[in-house]
Write a protein that binds this DNA or RNA. Structure first.
Length: 335
DNA sequence: GAGGGTCAAGTCCGT
DNA sequence: ACGGACTTGACCCTC
């Protein structure tokens, strides 16, 4: 378990070496199902084995890179792309082959040990296809399978043993809402249940829906999503945030922070938080405002987001990844 | 090496 | 009906 007293600011999935440039050798590889289907069985296996081996080496290097940062920057969301096609019916067998299993066990174990030794807080965020509350039973079944893919990696890394020693976050999604999450929860493994977090989204299922799940799983407050939905800059002292914190049962919570793209905000003012009603009156849509910025360009928003760091770690979602989150952190934390 | 077409999957918004 | 947005543009083929 990571140090509960350490305040953190994290970033997601990819490491940039400089503005606009992915770090060479420090990002994962993938392939496509279409391409795999053109390959013979053993060639496809070798292809996936090579990618898995590469990605495990890369993941270890990523965590090592994060571990070398100051303690307050040691938080990282791992890409879901580590093992391509894991949940595709035609290729699942690849990942249960004995040689592959050996690779996965040793590779992920090394990552977990490195993270624990250096107090790096890790998480996953399954992609948009993981919709546990869909009204389509087939989609729910696939989503549970997709979630358990992440739980497998979590287990290999040595997490999922205690409540929220690792965060695996999804939105409510689908038409069934919180009730659908509660029902899907019953089909998840214990590691998956320990790690599941639910995040409020911009549209259908927002903070109020999330709060129906306070006793089901830990809740992630996405402060930008909540702003898109309500126009409100929610405060850490808000009673609803207190309930969100309670859902973590003593573990240090995580919130998500992103901002709208600067080019969509006509004032470009960096010292005033955008006014949602005014932006909409000016013709901007929620869909436009939803898109994430490259950098954290608005200092007023940054101060608002940072006010949560006393209570929760902040996962940053921006196009420039570590470049953006480190600059944001440096506005407030001198190291 | 560069450029363009393509990519497993869900859901919603806006045009 | 379709493109774009979301957790991350990357991969693969052709020239």
């Amino acid at each position: 378990m990571f140090n509960q007293n350490q305040h953190r600011i994290g970033f997601a999935c990819k490491i940039q070496s400089q503005l606009g440039t992915a770090h060479k050798d420090l990002n994962t590889k993938s392939t496509t199902i279409t391409h795999l289907k053109t390959l013979e069985r053993t060639v496809a296996y070798n292809k996936l084995y090579g990618i898995a081996k590469n990605n495990l080496t890369t993941l270890l290097a990523q965590v090592k890179w994060v571990a070398q940062q100051p303690p307050h920057l040691r938080m990282f969301r791992i890409s879901s792309d580590i093992l391509p096609a894991y949940t595709h019916d035609d290729y699942t067998w690849v990942y249960f082959d004995p040689e592959m299993l050996k690779l996965l066990e040793s590779g992920f174990a090394a990552v977990g040990e490195l993270a624990r030794a250096n107090d790096v807080r890790l998480s996953f965020h399954p992609a948009q296809y993981c919709v546990l509350a869909s009204d389509n039973p087939g989609v729910v079944e696939n989503s549970i399978y997709e979630f358990e893919y992440h739980a497998d990696m979590i287990r290999y890394m040595g997490y999922g043993r205690t409540f929220q020693d690792f965060k695996c976050n999804v939105h409510v999604g689908g038409k069934r809402g919180p009730d659908g999450i509660k029902e899907a929860m019953r089909s998840l493994s214990s590691e998956a249940r320990n790690c599941l977090t639910i995040e409020n989204a911009e549209f259908t299922w927002g903070l109020d829906a999330s709060l129906e799940l306070v006793d089901t799983c830990a809740l992630v407050l996405d402060i930008h999503h909540h702003w898109i939905m309500s126009g409100e800059y929610i405060k850490p002292t808000d009673a609803r945030f207190k309930r969100v914190m309670d859902s973590w049962r003593g573990v240090r919570p995580v919130i998500h922070y992103s901002v709208s793209r600067e080019e969509h905000v006509p004032t470009h003012s960096t010292s005033v938080k955008p006014d949602l009603a005014a932006l909409k009156a000016g013709g901007l849509t929620s869909a436009k405002l939803r898109a994430h910025s490259d950098m954290y360009w608005n200092q007023a928003c940054n101060a608002w987001a940072y006010s949560f760091n006393e209570f929760a770690d902040i996962m940053c979602e921006s196009k420039e990844k570590n470049i953006a989150s480190f600059k944001f952190a440096n506005e407030f934390i001198k190291f």
